[in-house]
Design a protein around this nucleic acid. Structure first.
Lengths: 349, 349
DNA sequence: GTGAAAGCGCTAACAG
DNA sequence: CTGTTAGCGCTTTCAC
């Protein structure tokens, strides 16, 4: 910047003013500065700028999700990024893999870079470590799950009610042996969905069978083998409740591999193939899947809107950054059961 | 930091040393500093730190893709982020929507925040504007496409050969009226794929029919209606070559809506439904789709590996950041044709 | 081993 | 309208 000032024959201060678009600079000097900037290929160092301009903030926010490659979080991220772009912010992004240590490291790295705000899909760990930063003005919003030890704006869905709705749907279609296929119970959404499952069964006087409960499914493959084992057991379920997209996919894998019509090789593309033979369990999944409506077994799901979640979260965060000091809000977004066939199959006689 | 120093009864310099893990500080003073840090909830400002430590860089990279919500780029982003995490870097992320203006703004915002490197999926615009930054040491790597006016490491696939392979596959199965369904031709990958399409036809002496050519398809819906119009025309294609995932999805939509067996309502889940009636066109898509193997019409695709692309790009970038000054490299990743049924259907008699 | 002085690149506050 | 001075929070350098 000194170089530019010298080249333009003015003081650094004038250069600063021109580059910041401040008024009160004569047109000639401004032009001369701009020429010098162009000639030298000068670019302002915004990091140094932020250091001095305390009030303005870094115009950077952090987004921390479970897994950026998961379509659910990818949609969320895109909508957060769009909101940030519109507001003139940039976004640091990180995946935690639902690992507390990694989450802490990522958040710490973001905060020491002075982000103005943080949008988190928090892991199960306590988030008290954020205290020093929240106290110095870093705003935080939680998405998908609340964070323990952190009283901030939160955007979620009513997981329990949604799960109850899914299981009710299966019960309505005559099922009594409904398997619960879940991820780690330390994840809040999973606990809620499990609760909803139990409540739905209890409301109808259906007993929960331990053999139909499966927690800790972390991958599509794990889900597939758990379901395969269940279906091969002495008293298999007639219906499956899969509590996230990954697990739904795994369940479909298992059903196709083991079921009647679904498993046949269709790669010749020639012959007509029967579907829904009736020996496949009914399935309701949580979270929509891309192409869930086009699968060989169109999948009934409880749908949420991750883009809306991201957009709402971003709106809350920017309101806070802009000075909103009201009490933390909890926004609960709607879910919707989308019947597509897999959840409406009656139980095997 | 001054406060911590006062609290611990040492100079700011000693605090700095302790926090940076430098040797040459007595154990007692170090402990006293750490106590003070904890008591005051002090967190170092890494932005200020970077300002002074010129050589070290900001340990931040930027990733600029077309659309973070697109599974292809989401996978790429995740693998870049993982590599960055392992190296102790954080990543700024932005979507361009293939819009040159937005790309420029995003890149400028990243660069003025002093990123050490940039991983780009460049739009069609010239990237000469990056010159000032590349000259001051900002490293750049391009993914998926080369950037005009920027001689840097690039990771791509052989789009032309891959497209040729896809069209050859359709020709091998007897098709002669093969539609080309493409996005904007100003996108490099699309130009290459179109070239491959023409080459494949030419090699067999098949004439390219203008009515079977469609460019500029920007969304699933647009692709669907273009395909629907084509199929309803006097001389419809017997096969479709869809040049990206979005367009494949749209083509499937159109085929299902218009075709024979695929369109029937299966939401009752009861009856067996015929597929591949023979009146549907064959389809080969570019890029794999999640669940492409589980669709009611399992989709034959040319597959690429976006995670490998991201990983390779990150490796190249970090090598550059670490000082590699060799000539820019061009890495060409492999593609694979995955036959799943939709591309092996013979043409209608 | 420790601290004082100087300064990274920029801008707030004030003076002219 | 323009320039000077001081200092953002940290670290380099060099003295002790």
């Amino acid at each position: 910047m000194r170089d530019v000032a010298r080249e333009a024959g003015v003081s650094p201060m004038t250069v600063s003013r021109v580059l910041s678009g401040e008024p009160g600079v004569s047109a000639e000097k401004a032009a001369s500065v701009e020429r010098a900037v162009r000639r030298l290929g000068y670019r302002r160092n915004d990091l140094a700028r932020m250091l001095r301009r305390k009030g303005a903030g870094s115009r950077t926010i952090g987004l921390v999700v479970d897994d950026l490659a998961n379509p659910f979080y990818a949609l969320m991220a895109r909508s957060v990024e769009d909101a940030a772009y519109r507001q003139g912010y940039v976004v640091l992004v990180g995946s935690t893999n639902d690992d507390r240590r990694r989450e802490r490291e990522v958040i710490a790295a973001f905060c020491s870079r002075q982000v103005d705000g943080l949008i988190l899909v928090p892991t199960c760990g306590s988030h008290g470590f954020l205290r020093p930063w929240t106290e110095t003005g870093t705003r935080v919003v939680c998405l998908d799950r609340p964070a323990r030890g952190l009283d901030v704006d939160t955007v979620t869905v009513d997981n329990r009610a949604a799960a109850r709705g899914a299981v009710d749907h299966l019960l309505d279609h005559g099922h009594r042996r409904i398997a619960y296929l879940g991820d780690r119970l330390d994840i809040w959404t999973q606990r809620e969905r499990h609760l909803g499952y139990r409540e739905a069964l209890a409301a109808r006087g259906v007993e929960a069978v331990p053999g139909l409960l499966c927690h800790g499914l972390r991958s599509r493959a794990e889900a597939a083998s758990a379901v395969a084992a269940m279906l091969a057991s002495d008293s298999p379920p007639t219906a499956l409740f899969a509590t996230n997209g990954l697990i739904s996919a795994g369940a479909l894998d298992a059903v196709r591999a083991g079921g009647g019509g679904g498993g046949s090789d269709r790669s010749d593309g020639g012959g007509a193939t029967a579907l829904g033979e009736g020996d496949d369990p009914a399935i309701v999944g949580f979270d929509d899947l891309p192409f869930a409506d086009r699968l060989d077994q169109p999948l009934t799901v409880v749908n949420q809107d991750p883009a809306a979640m991201g957009g709402t979260g971003a709106a809350l965060l920017f309101a806070r950054i802009e000075g909103d000091r009201s009490a933390p809000r909890s926004v609960v977004l709607l879910t919707r059961l989308i019947p597509r066939g897999s959840g409406e199959r009656p139980p095997l006689a």
